[in-house]
């Protein structure tokens, strides 16, 4: 469905991606784990051409492009096949919830307004915001904003949705509602490439987990294999740290 090959990206002298290959099959949910600064965000941004990778190629459906030589038209085609959910939600501030969901449908895909409105309503209902159609982003909690952002992505019916730490800007008590929406999106069979540190999501939902460090994939496999018997020392160290913190966080809020 979507594959990237040999993605290289350098910022100045900082080599952030050192030849990353990822293959995601239709309907698959792939979680990317890795320490901060390992290049996860940059990788997703390269796939959506929000950064221009120095090298590598992208295949998505029947589109095949070189990152470096992609034309404006090719970039637009890729973006119209993908959707992205950002860490900081990035809802359009000049549009209310339903307009946020409709924008890509109406303006980019030229779907008639009435039809787009129905789709947007349906998607907002699915994320539990049937009473917030007309709310402005500033009137919504972080969790609600992120749910609108997910509805906005799903409404486009893209070949793949890229999630970049969708819950890490949220207050702990709001993480659950967003994760459960992501789980139901996964159950719909939508292809997802998810950067997250939420171990429960990775464990319960992911078909495959990829561990990245210093701009390269260290290892990948089934969640239960990665979590219970990682092959690489760096993976183990990272998991120990995260799980420890997870426990600590849980203790903290388990009063």
């Amino acid at each position: 469905m979507i594959s990237v090959k040999n993605v290289h990206k350098t910022f100045g002298k900082n080599e952030v991606l050192k030849g990353v290959d990822i293959d995601v099959k239709r309907g698959e949910v792939v979680v990317i784990l890795g320490p901060s600064g390992s290049g996860k965000t940059t990788l997703l941004r390269c796939i959506n051409f929000l950064e221009k990778a120095d090298e590598g190629e992208l295949n998505i459906g029947d589109i095949s492009v070189h990152f470096r030589h992609a034309t404006r038209q090719e970039i637009l085609r890729v973006r119209r096949r993908t959707a992205m959910v950002f860490q900081s939600y990035n809802l359009f501030n000049n549009k209310n919830a339903i307009e946020n969901v409709m924008e890509g449908l109406v303006t980019a895909r030229k779907i008639p307004k009435g039809e787009a409105y129905e789709t947007a309503k349906k998607e907002l209902d699915k994320v539990g915001l049937s009473d917030k159609y007309n709310a402005w982003p500033s009137q919504l909690s972080g969790g609600q904003q992120q749910r609108v952002a997910i509805a906005r992505a799903v409404a486009l019916n893209p070949d793949v949705i890229l999630f970049d730490e969708p819950t890490s800007a949220l207050d702990p008590e709001l993480v659950g509602e967003v994760l459960s929406v992501m789980k139901s999106v996964a159950r719909e069979g939508i292809t997802m490439l998810v950067v997250t540190h939420e171990m429960s999501f990775a464990r319960d939902i992911a078909d495959r987990v990829i561990f990245m460090d210093e701009g390269a994939i260290v290892e990948e496999g089934l969640p239960r294999d990665i979590f219970t018997r990682p092959k690489e020392r760096r993976t183990k160290q990272f998991l120990d740290r995260i799980l420890l913190k997870d426990e600590y966080v849980k203790d903290d809020y388990a009063i």
Binding site: N48, F49, L50, L76, R79, R80, T82, A83, M84, F86, S88, N90, L91, F92, N93, N94, E103, G104, T107, A108, R109, R152, A153, L156
Partner: peptide
């Protein structure tokens, strides 16, 4: 990040400017 969100839903550069950036800038 507003432009990036617009590009990610498939808006072209000029659509992004007219529909997302300019209205917010005007405000």
């Amino acid at each position: 990040s507003q432009s990036e969100a617009a590009w990610s839903v498939g808006l072209s550069a000029s659509q992004t400017f007219r529909r997302i950036i300019l209205p917010q800038a005007f405000r």
